[in-house]
């Protein structure tokens, strides 16, 4: 069995330690394991699939460059999510400084292989989300038969969606989210409480 195929079966801690030892094959396995979760998180903040993919690439390359600084290999996943959350927020801020609206749907050309899905959401969401066209979170969930969830998340601010994804989907604790987003823990709790209340209210409306 080749070294690379053996590494496909290794646990996360082993892969992180081997990658810190300079094993590129181990880090490639880590890329494959985490890219989807990172895309989900970036997509919750950004509304452009290309931007979200860029953020995921930057996140993983940054992680590779700084991997030797990671003290606790068991913290690798939350460390990655932190980098990704910060990068996503930076993109939104940069867009705001440039005076462009990172959320404006007209700025987003359809992506090859994704455009059809995005279009399907845009036409299939019944107008529930006026800004839905080009929203990668839509693109990401469109084939997931998770449209209900997507529509429940409509109306949440990007900052609330980001907190919500980190907590409810990625399972981070309040302190980890606070650290990832550079926020007081109380603000994280507040955003999550509002997000939860919003989703429950939408669920009630649809009953």
């Amino acid at each position: 069995m080749s070294e690379a195929s053996q590494e496909r079966r290794m646990d996360e801690r082993t892969l992180v330690l081997r990658a810190q030892d300079g094993d590129v094959d181990a880090f490639e396995v880590l890329i494959d394991r985490h890219q989807s979760a990172l895309l989900r998180l970036a997509s919750a903040t950004l509304r452009n699939r290309a931007d979200a993919e860029d953020v995921v690439q930057e996140t993983l390359l940054t992680a590779w460059r700084r991997l030797h600084l990671l003290q606790d290999p068991d913290a690798f996943r939350s460390w990655l999510l932190q980098i990704c959350a910060r990068r996503s927020t930076d993109v939104v801020r940069r867009s705001a400084r440039r005076g462009t609206d990172p959320l404006a749907p007209e700025d987003f050309p359809e992506q090859p292989g994704v455009g059809g899905s995005v279009g399907a959401v845009g036409s299939g969401s019944g107008g529930a989300n006026a800004g839905g066209h080009g929203d990668p979170f839509d693109a990401v969930v469109v084939d997931a038969q998770m449209r209900t969830l997507r529509q429940l998340l409509d109306g949440l601010e990007a900052s609330q969606r980001e907190c919500w994804v980190l907590r409810e989907i990625d399972g981070l604790g309040y302190a980890e989210i606070a650290s990832a987003l550079d926020l007081p823990e109380s603000t994280v709790r507040g955003r999550l409480a509002r997000a939860r209340a919003h989703i429950i209210a939408r669920m009630e409306e649809w009953r």
Partner: peptide, 28 residues
């Protein structure tokens, strides 16, 4: 549902293969 899509390699929940290949080249 997300786990099932990820397991099946569904492109909707994954970074494009071209972007992943470029990333791995950069890492190396």
């Amino acid at each position: 549902e997300w786990a099932a899509l990820e397991k099946s390699g569904d492109p909707s929940v994954s970074v494009s293969s071209g972007a992943l290949a470029a990333l791995k080249r950069s890492v190396r």
